[in-house]
Every structure is written in structure tokens, then in C-alpha cells.
Amino acid sequence: MKDASVVAARPELEEAARRADSRRGFLIALPAWFYLTLFFVLPLGIVAVYSFATRSSTGRTVLGDWNVDAYRRLWDSLVLQIAVRTLVLALVTTLICLLLAYPLAYYMATRRPMVRNILLILVMIPFWSNFLVRTYAWKVLLGTDGPVSQLSQALGGEPIRLLFTNTAVLIGLVYGFLPFMVLPLYAALERMDWSLVEAARDLYAGGWTAFRKVTWPLSLPGVIAGSILVFIPTLGAYVTPAILGGAKTTLAGDYIVSQFLAARNQPFGSALSMGMMFIMLGATIIYFRWFRPSGRDL
């Protein structure tokens, strides 16, 4: 810093260095730029364009007769019902995941390093097999002849019919997305400086108060990351509701797919997709605003 005057005497060199630096940065990011443009921006553009197109009587998409009819249909009561149901399900899934994952992540983060790694591997083991296969396994577990129902009957109760209900979808989603909540929470808690908790205890806070005043606020980055990682994919979940859910429990993902395939209404399907994208965007912004007061960069 002391030599700043000497260095600043050659501003043209500094400028050149800055340009070279930004050029290098661009080159490094180039493959990602290319990939995202080709496989994300372009398809998204197509969806955006299609959402303003018209569906012909045979189910073909006519480009050229631009209108916003598809967007008007988003306000149909059926669509709104599906949207609300999807949002509620995603919120409940996120909340349950958080309630289950936080104690687990806390437990993991406070173990010896050896035990931590073993637990981490255990959390990730489900990823080793296909998601579809695992969801079908849940179909067996939750079915009328499945172990859950059998256990209930063995205890003298009624057979439990879980499959094709919202509860089954919820169970499947929580199961599928739990690791995405555990891992960011674990990362946040594992980084925690536990002497801060000791300091709180030393300053007359009880165990629960110390958690509320210190551990929780300091683990918020993990809570935010985990919640977004669970909430966003749950909003668009298709496989789990399709396999475990029933016809009466259509969710946004199902509905969009059905517009593209069964109903052959690409403009409406596209408009639905765009609408959902904006809901996700809005939700993400709200999340960040809500959990992260300004001026804190944890």
C-alpha cells in the first residue's frame, strides 16, 4: 500500500493487466457460457416463443398468430388450484425436510471426524441407485399389500391405503430431497465455531437460548441453501407425483407434461412453464430477502 504512488505512476500498465485479467476470466467461463446458451437459453427461448403461439385444431403449434390466450388460461380456477396445491406441497416438503434434517446435520457436525464421514456416506448412499427405481420401491412399501399396511393390520388395525394420495407424494418427496437439505446444513454447522456457543453459555444463556441466539442465526446460510435446493425441484417434481400420486392430486409438473403430451397444447404448456419459472424466481428472491437481513455476508 505504501508503494501505491509508485505503482499508480504507470496507469496504462494497470489498465492492460486488468484487461488481460478479464480476458482470462472470460476464456475460463467460455465452455460454461457455450453450454448454457445452447442447452438452457435456447430451449427457454423456444418455450417463451411457443407460449405466444396458437394451437391449431389438430394440435399443431402455429407460429405467427401471436397472442396471449395461453397466459389468460393461467387464471382458470383449475390451474390456480393446481398451482396452490403444488406450492403448499413444496412448502410442506421443505419444512418437513428442514425439521428432519436439522437435528441430523447437527448430530453429524458434532461427531468425531471419523464418524462424521461415515454418516455423510450413509446420507449419500441413496444416490447410488436410480431415483426412479427408488420411487417404485416406495410404491411397494406404501401399497395396500405393503409392509406399512401389513404392520397396521398385524396390530389389529385397518389396512392403510397410502398409495395414490397426497401423503404418499409427500413421503416420496421428503425421502427424495432430504439429502439436499442435510448436506448444506451439515456444511454450515460443520464450519460453526463452537466456542461461540460456549461464549453464549458463559454469558448466562441456557442451552436452548444459546441455540436460538447463536447456532441458528449462524447456520442460516445452510438453511437458505437447503430450502432452495428442496423447494425449487419439488415445485417442478414430476416423477414422484406421477408414480405415487393419484389422478385427483395433479401437480404442476404432471399438468405441464400432460399439456405437451396428452392434450398436445404446446402454447398452453409453455405458458404454464413460464408461469412456474416466475413463481420460482419470486420465491427465491423472497427467501433471500426474508432470511438475510441487509449488510450481513455470512
Binding site: S195, L196, A199, A200, L203, G206, P217
Partner: peptide, 20 residues
């Protein structure tokens, strides 16, 4: 006794100031 019940206070090696 737990720490919050003791009439002592600690200055930690890492200071342990609450960053938030």
C-alpha cells in the same frame, strides 16, 4: 453446574465474538 449458572465469565482465546 452448567456455565450459565456460574458467577464467572470467560475471555476466549479466539475471542468468540458473535459475528452476527
Amino acid at each position: 453446574q452448567p456455565p450459565n449458572q456460574r458467577p464467572v465469565n470467560t475471555v476466549f482465546q479466539s475471542y468468540a465474538l458473535f459475528p452476527h
